[in-house]
Design a protein around this nucleic acid. Sequence first.
DNA 1: CGCATGGTTGAGGTCGCTCAAGCGAGGTGG
DNA 2: CCACCTCGCTTGAGCGACCTCAACCATGCG
Lengths: 227, 227
Amino acid sequence: MSQIDVRALLRHQPMFHQLSDAQIDALAPGVREVRGQKSQVVFHRGDVCEGLYLVVYGRVKLSISSAQGVEKVIEIIQPGQSFAEAVMFLGTPCPVTAQFLEDGLLLQVEASAIDRAMTDDPAFARRLLAGLSMRLHSLIRDVERYSIESSTQRVLGYLLQYADPEQGAQQVVTLPVNKNLIASRLNLTPETFSRVLHQLSDAGLLAVNGRDITLLDLDKVRAFGCG
Amino acid sequence: MSQIDVRALLRHQPMFHQLSDAQIDALAPGVREVRGQKSQVVFHRGDVCEGLYLVVYGRVKLSISSAQGVEKVIEIIQPGQSFAEAVMFLGTPCPVTAQFLEDGLLLQVEASAIDRAMTDDPAFARRLLAGLSMRLHSLIRDVERYSIESSTQRVLGYLLQYADPEQGAQQVVTLPVNKNLIASRLNLTPETFSRVLHQLSDAGLLAVNGRDITLLDLDKVRAFGCG
DNA sequence: CGCATGGTTGAGGTCGCTCAAGCGAGGTGG
DNA sequence: CCACCTCGCTTGAGCGACCTCAACCATGCG
């Protein structure tokens, strides 16, 4: 792959949107392409990484595993998002394992390149900070979910995330990945997830059709979520 | 309080250690002192804050509350640490409530002052990023704890955090705050926390004497934590 | 003393997990 | 074409960890 391609890819990453062409050029030498196939591991928990990753296409799963082999999905990284920034700034071992959910392409940007970009452009540092902040807040939401919400509330909260408040009271949410993965994300077993969906379906709040979930009354769903 | 004092206080904050006197001077006008008494609220969940907070002395509790009034402690901020950075960079409402655990003094640094410091000194931005990264990792640990560890493992993990690997196999850990707060931090009820401690005590792993907990055999404790 | 606060202990309930079986869709190969 | 498999999902029965509610005890303080 030529540098031309890398530059074009970099330019399309939200993180780098406001960099000048010269800054992109400066970044490019510090960037490595990482192609991977479904279920291939990018790095294991405990590995040391020397740079952050950007997802160009494909999705990546960040997860942890207990000694007993139970796996727990922490986050699903979509194209355009980044991961392992924190580990880069700390230089500590990775707290999670990263694995391709499907064939995909990543860009690994080494720390020195990021440092250069930050020095050149303070706005870039601010963007990184904002990115980490968002991650932080979403993790706080997670802690909240796991600690004080019931399984039903977690499921509804997850679904509401995908609902558009502007749209009508009734709308369809299509699950982005398979139900097992979502269950893990919500810290539920697949069995419980399935049961919760059907129980909500019985209650007349939603209708399930494979991965398509129709929220029948957004206001009722919201009210239920806060009860 | 005069500006002299603010500058002296700023200089002692880890976050600002590497700033020059001139940079500290530039920061000072954007800093506000916040004195508070035990259980006084700094900001409520949902409030908008225009700057980050540094704890000079006293401790601050970050927590969330469910609609039913159940409170859950997310973090206990010690002197020298900061909070609300994420909210500052995003400009979003606070996801948590901040409350003094005892009489204390905070410094509120407004966003524009931080921006200035970042522009002047890229290393400062890096320090902020490292700070947020540490927060992120500790939250990942939390999610891990809540989702795949048992109550016993959570308690042991918490205690091991305070143990010094360099010291002998037997050492005393003094709980920094009262047991109710720690229980909440570990997502346990006070009752369960108490029971777990006594159960571990029966198992000969530790001895409880008020807030002083003696770990009787560090290796055994570690082994127990992983089983 | 009376009261508040923090901690312990007991009895009982429940949410979500585990284990196990069954089902439908999609794919492969004989 | 059908047998057969896998994979994702569902359903049921039983169970256990942790919570809830309630009483009780120790300490400190006005």
